[in-house]
Amino acid sequence: MATESSRESTAWMLALDDRLRAAVGEHELIHLIEAPTLLEVPLSPYYCQRVILWNDLLLPAMDLAAWLWGREQPAQQERKLAGVVAYQPRMGAAEYGALLLSDIPTRARVSDTQACKLPEQPTGWRDLAISCFLDTETPVPILDLPLIFSGGLL
């Protein structure tokens, strides 16, 4: 996220549930959907059981809190927000997905000096995150969106 000149950039801080926070780059979060209409897909994994129809696209609605805690979250129904994210699995081919959120994302300036180790718990962070930074003494993992949305969690 940092540029060579400034070594500082902007991130979106995401509330995955009431305890878990993560971040994506400024240009990775492109839209916020309040009270999204979620359509159920049978045979799908417990952490991604629904899709959202958005701009003629079907976006997988990823519940990363469920994946990190290892079970479907009973509070999922209360999360009324979905953040639409863009990622680039290959050069020149932007793709989209949605993350279920429990609160409105906030912006933060992040510099390289804030780099830190991933949280030890939940252990799944090491699979989801490409790096991590400290925000007011709390480690905030930065999500690996191409891995998350291209089947890396299956």
């Binding site: 897909v41 045979l43 991604c48 949305f149």
Partner: peptide, 27 residues
Amino acid sequence: LLALPACMGSPASPIQALAPLDEELGC
């Protein structure tokens, strides 16, 4: 018809595509 997102099913899934219908989603 729209593709099943890669993170939602393995290549062995019997779902070949998804189809938004009126208020539901066809597999």
